[in-house]
C-alpha cells in the first residue's frame, strides 16, 4: 500500500508541472532544454570529483586496507551491539552508495531481512546518505576548499544514526 503510494508521487508531480506550465502558456519544451543544459554543465563540472572518490575508494577497498582497519574497529562496534556481519556495510555507507547496496543485499541473504542484522542494516542504510560523496560533489560546483566543518558534522550525524538505530531496533523489535 505505502509502496504503491510512493510510486505515484513522481508521475503526479511530472503531470502537475506540465499542466501548470500549459495553463500559464509557457513553452514547455524550451523550459526543458534550458534546464537540461544546466544539468549537463553541472554534472560535467563535478566529474573530476566523482572520479576522485570512486578511484580512491576502489583502491582502499580492494587492496585489503579497508578490511585491515575494520578488524581493529570490530570490538568497538561489538560494544555498541553491532554484529560483525554488518560492520563493513556501516563503514562503507558514507563512501559508496552502490557498494553499500550490494553489501546490504548480502546481509539479507546471509542473515535474512527480518533478522536483527537485517533490520539494523536496513534502518542504518535508510537513515544515512553517502556523506563523503555528497560533500565532494556538492562543494565541487563551488569555490569552497575548506570542508572540515561540514565533514565533521556529516560524519557525526552518521555516528548518531548508528547509535539511535541500535536503540530503536532493539525497542521496536525486541528479541525473544
Amino acid at each position: 500500500m505505502i509502496h504503491n503510494l510512493s510510486e505515484l508521487v513522481f508521475p503526479c508531480f511530472l503531470g502537475l508541472f506540465i499542466l501548470f506550465a500549459l495553463k500559464k502558456k509557457q513553452n514547455v519544451i524550451s523550459s526543458f532544454t534550458v534546464g537540461a543544459k544546466n544539468g549537463f554543465s553541472a554534472i560535467c563540472s563535478i566529474t573530476p570529483n566523482i572520479l576522485a572518490i570512486m578511484v580512491a575508494s576502489a583502491l582502499f577497498r580492494q587492496s585489503g586496507a579497508f578490511s585491515y582497519f575494520l578488524r581493529y574497529l570490530l570490538p568497538l562496534l561489538r560494544a555498541i551491539r553491532i554484529p560483525d556481519g554488518i560492520a563493513e556495510l556501516i563503514l562503507l555507507r558514507p563512501v559508496s552508495g552502490s557498494g553499500a547496496m550490494v553489501l546490504l543485499s548480502n546481509v539479507y541473504e546471509q542473515f535474512g531481512a527480518d533478522s536483527y542484522e537485517g533490520l539494523l542494516a536496513s534502518v542504518i542504510c535508510a537513515s544515512t546518505e553517502t556523506t563523503l560523496y555528497t560533500i565532494m560533489v556538492y562543494f565541487g560546483v563551488t569555490g569552497v576548499k575548506k570542508t572540515k566543518l561540514p565533514l565533521l558534522v556529516g560524519l557525526t550525524a552518521d555516528g548518531i544514526v548508528i547509535l539511535l538505530s541500535v536503540l530503536f531496533v532493539n525497542l521496536f523489535f525486541p528479541s525473544p
Binding site: F17, A21, F32, V34, G35, A36, G39
Partner: peptide, 8 residues
C-alpha cells in the same frame, strides 16, 4: 533538471 525548470 529539465523537468524542474518546467516547474520553475
Amino acid at each position: 533538471s529539465g523537468i524542474i525548470q518546467i516547474g520553475e
